[in-house]
C-alpha cells in the first residue's frame, strides 16, 4: 500500500486548484475537449516555454504542482505513462519533414517528440537524478507506472512521483474518428450518458501522484492495488477477475463503498461495465467521470485523482454520481477499459 501525499490534475475542468473540488462542470459542445490552461509562465521561464508543445506544458506543470502539493522538492523517483506520447509536436515535425521533402527541417519539435519528454522535464526541474521511466502502452500506461512505483517502494525508494498524460492532437482525434470511436452527432459533454448512443468524445488530461510509504497530514488516501488484464471473454469472466482481485486484497464486494466506472458514453462498450455493476455492485455508490475529461488512453489517472480527492474530503461531487447508495467513501474500486486494455485499481481511505 502506498499513500497518496500529493496530487494535482490539469484537465478540461477547473481541477488544478485543490482548494475547490468540481464546484461546477464546464460544458463543451462537439466531440473533443481540451484542458483548461493554467498560467504556465509561473513554471517555465520565457526562454523555454516558447518551445513547448501543449502536452509538455500541462503535463510538466501537473507534475510540478503535485510535488508542491506534497511539499516535496525532489522526488525519490519518477515513473509516468502516456498512450500516444507527444503527438502534437510529432505531427508538427512530420508535416515539416513531408512538406519540405526532407530538405529543410527544424529540430525543435523533434527534440520534444520522445515519449519521455515530460518525465525528463520534471527530473530536470526538480533536480531528480534517480530512476526515471516512461511507459507507452495504451490503456496500461498509467497502470504500468503504478506497478513500477510499487516495485520501487519495495526496492527502497520513497516519495515516488507517478502520473499519466495524453493530449487531443489533430492526429489522435482523426484516428479516433477513423476507428469509429467518436460521436457523429454534436454532443454536449454533460449529456454524454443521457441517451443510448454510439461513440464517445475525445479528451485529455494530466494527473500526478506523489506516493509515499509514510502518511502525513496531507495524505489523501492510499493506492492499495492494481490489476491489468486483456479483454475478458464475457461478463462472467470480468466478474470472476474482479472478485479474485478484491479477495487478493482481502476485500469482498460488499466492503466496497464506491465504484468508479469508466463508462465512455458508447452504450455498446458500456454494456460490460453495466453487467459488472449489476452482478457485483448493487449496494455501492456508482460514479462515472468521462463526461469531465473525455476518453483517452490514460483516463484512469484522472479517475484516480477523483478517488484521491473524494477520500480526503469524504464527499462526492454531485456531477459524478450515477447511482447513490449513501455510503461513506472509504474503499473505492476503479474499473476502466480502453480498447482491450482493462484495469482495476483499489483505493483505501486512511
Amino acid at each position: 500500500m502506498l499513500y497518496i501525499n500529493g496530487t494535482v490534475c490539469i484537465s478540461p475542468q477547473n481541477t488544478s486548484d485543490n482548494s475547490v473540488f468540481l464546484p461546477e462542470v464546464k460544458p463543451y459542445t462537439g466531440n473533443k475537449i481540451y484542458c483548461v490552461d493554467v498560467d504556465y509562465t509561473k513554471f517555465f521561464d520565457p526562454g523555454s516555454i516558447r518551445r513547448m508543445g501543449r502536452l509538455i506544458k500541462f503535463g510538466t506543470a501537473a507534475g510540478m504542482l503535485t510535488l508542491k502539493d506534497a511539499g516535496v522538492e525532489t522526488p525519490g523517483a519518477i515513473s509516468t505513462g502516456t498512450g500516444y506520447g507527444l503527438m502534437d509536436v510529432s505531427q508538427k515535425f512530420l508535416h515539416n519533414v513531408i512538406d519540405s521533402n526532407e530538405t529543410s527541417v527544424s529540430p525543435t519539435s523533434f527534440i520534444q517528440s520522445t515519449h519521455n519528454t515530460v518525465s525528463s522535464n520534471i527530473a530536470l526541474m526538480s533536480g531528480c537524478h534517480a530512476h526515471n521511466n516512461t511507459f507507452a502502452h495504451r490503456g496500461f500506461s498509467f497502470e504500468s507506472s503504478l506497478l513500477d512505483a510499487f516495485l520501487l517502494a519495495k526496492e527502497g525508494y520513497d516519495n515516488i512521483l507517478v502520473g499519466a498524460y495524453d493530449e487531443v492532437s489533430d492526429h489522435s482525434y482523426r484516428s479516433m474518428k477513423r476507428l469509429g470511436l467518436l460521436r457523429e452527432e454534436p454532443c454536449t459533454n454533460t449529456e454524454l450518458f443521457t441517451a443510448e448512443q454510439k461513440g464517445t468524445i475525445a479528451g485529455e488530461a494530466a494527473a500526478f501522484f506523489l506516493l509515499s510509504k509514510e502518511k502525513n497530514e496531507n495524505t489523501y488516501g492510499a493506492f492499495a492495488g492494481c490489476k491489468t488484464f486483456s479483454a475478458p471473454a464475457n461478463a462472467d469472466e470480468l466478474k470472476s477477475i474482479t472478485t479474485a482481485f478484491l479477495s487478493a486484497n482481502n476485500l469482498s464486494a460488499n466492503e466496497l463503498d464506491v465504484v468508479v466506472s469508466g463508462h465512455c458514453g458508447d452504450s455498446r462498450l458500456d454494456a460490460l461495465n453495466e453487467a459488472l455493476i449489476d452482478s457485483l455492485f448493487t449496494q455501492q455508490t456508482i460514479l462515472v467521470y468521462k463526461q469531465l475529461c473525455g476518453e483517452y488512453m490514460t483516463s484512469s489517472a484522472f479517475a484516480a485523482w477523483l478517488a484521491a480527492r473524494i477520500m480526503k474530503l469524504q464527499s462526492i461531487p454531485e456531477t459524478l454520481i450515477k447511482v447513490n447508495r449513501q455510503r461513506q467513501p472509504k474503499n473505492i474500486l476503479l474499473y476502466n477499459s480502453h480498447r482491450g486494455n482493462h484495469a482495476l485499481l483499489l483505493f483505501k481511505h486512511v
Binding site: G85, A136, S141, D170, S175, R178, L179
Partner: peptide
C-alpha cells in the same frame, strides 16, 4: 490522412502508437 481521415487504412491508423 490529414487531408481526408477516411482515406487511411484502418490497420495503419491502429498501429501508430508504441504500445
Amino acid at each position: 490522412f490529414h487531408e481526408d481521415h477516411t482515406k487511411a487504412d484502418l490497420s495503419d491508423v491502429e498501429q501508430h502508437d508504441s504500445g
